[in-house]
Write a protein that binds this DNA or RNA. Sequence first.
RNA 1: GGGGCCGUAGUGUAGCUUGGUAUCACGCCACCUUGGGGUGGUGGUAACCGGGGUUCAAAUCCCCGCGGCCCCA
Length: 492
Amino acid sequence: MEKEKNEKNKKLPKKEEINEWYPEVLRKAEIMDYGPVSGCMIIKPYGYAIWEHIQKYFDERIKKLGVKNAYFPLLIPESLFSKESEHVEGFAPEVAWVTHGGGTKLGERLAIRPTSETIMYEAYSRWIRSWRDLPLKINQWVNIVRWEFKHPTPFLRSREFLWQEGHTAFATKKEAVEEVFQILEEYRRVYEELLAVPVIKGLKSEKEKFAGAVFTSSVEAWLPINRFSQAATSHHLGQNFSKPFEIYFYDKNEEKQYVWQNSWGLSTRSIGITLMIHGDDYGLVIPPRIAPIKIVIIPIYNAKNKEDVLKYAQEIREMINKLVRDDEVVLDDSNDTPGAKYYYWELRGVPIRIEIGQRELKDKSVVIFRRDKREKENVSIKELSKRIQELFEDIHKYLYDKALKELREVIIPVESLDELKKVIEEKKAGIAYWCGSVEEEENIKYVTSGAKSVNNPLEGELERLGIKKPKEKKCFICGKKTDKIFIFSKCI
RNA sequence: GGGGCCGUAGUGUAGCUUGGUAUCACGCCACCUUGGGGUGGUGGUAACCGGGGUUCAAAUCCCCGCGGCCCCA
């Protein structure tokens, strides 16, 4: 009986019980912990290091596009927050308000930012005067509070989260719209190149677009909880904000013009998406490019050869230090047995493990274990550096391909609402030609008990990802002719 | 938005029906032992989610709050 219990604790079945697997593994691997308030979690160092990788990568990319970082206040006066009507309506239900300072009731409530359009644009209206002030491209890395009432899920749906929000202003609509897709492509890169997660670039439906936007584009990822997740968004705001906020400039002809604006964001949800997709029954599998610890070295010795083996392990470590940062390699010389260390580091998702014992010492080699496939191989130290680099690439590719295969298999072409209903009941996603009407989307949600439109994939996306299209180019509900294809699914 | 289940050391649990010294395992610390997939031993550490009520006495019964999970809309 006790043995049985111990065996059970070893493996964490991901597929069958992912809703328990996910928070349990995240906590055991020390990615996060719960805080005292529901939906507000602690990101522990091992999890935060992943965010730092994402930040570094994206920050460098946007700086090349001329974006500068800044910081705007957390608190937004209600009057300012309410200036754009669609925007307020969209966010009002989930805004957390500061109403008191100490014991004194404030004259005006202050919103804790659920997003920073309003507080930034108040400043933009003072900063932008001439065509020479444009384009203005500012980004901030900050926390956000949105008071969700659904069950919180670590990283994927929490009341407080971290993100970057870019807010840009242009003289012309053309420049602004171009940038929307430029940024969307950067988000695709973050997911596919860094996190090994395939995503679909596309446009949100009228119903699902950002409150206050002219249109919203997104990248979307499929999760093993049988839902799509909005992985990042890039909005074109048109002049919806510049008019109420009076953000205008005088052009070269001395004519007054309102600016054209965008906003775009990527949050810590990206961490949740990545970890949920790649993990397995042994715990996390962290893609090499963001792994806080990339290599763990396990020395295997007995009383007689301990010194020699450890010395050899040290040598190997120094070799590796040329490939990865010193803090990204761990030489685990603690007193646990090798097997115990294997399980420990596998739970934490370290991509590569190097085992070193008497045998390897003798023939100047090491055993390399790759976390993704859980396979071992023997490598001579001459080949070590090269092989590690190959493996990092290969692990990334393997994880990406595996996720892509699942994405392809889960999107099913449908020709009617009944078919969509069936597909959603089977916990998959549907793809259909659809006219995009808000009423029809409400009906879809009702009939399928909760499915939404995910997005309208951009030209070429479905081909790029190898996703099948439906045949007839007419709306699967009203039958009207249309060229627009949408994916439908439950979402988180 | 509606309904249900649950909360005991860091983790997983026993105890709750029928109120009376809180069980076991893992983990953690020390020492010995062991070492190529969770080595074995000895000793130690550590808990009743918070508040209120009932009672001589509450982990146990009642109420409120906080938190976690599930199902339906």
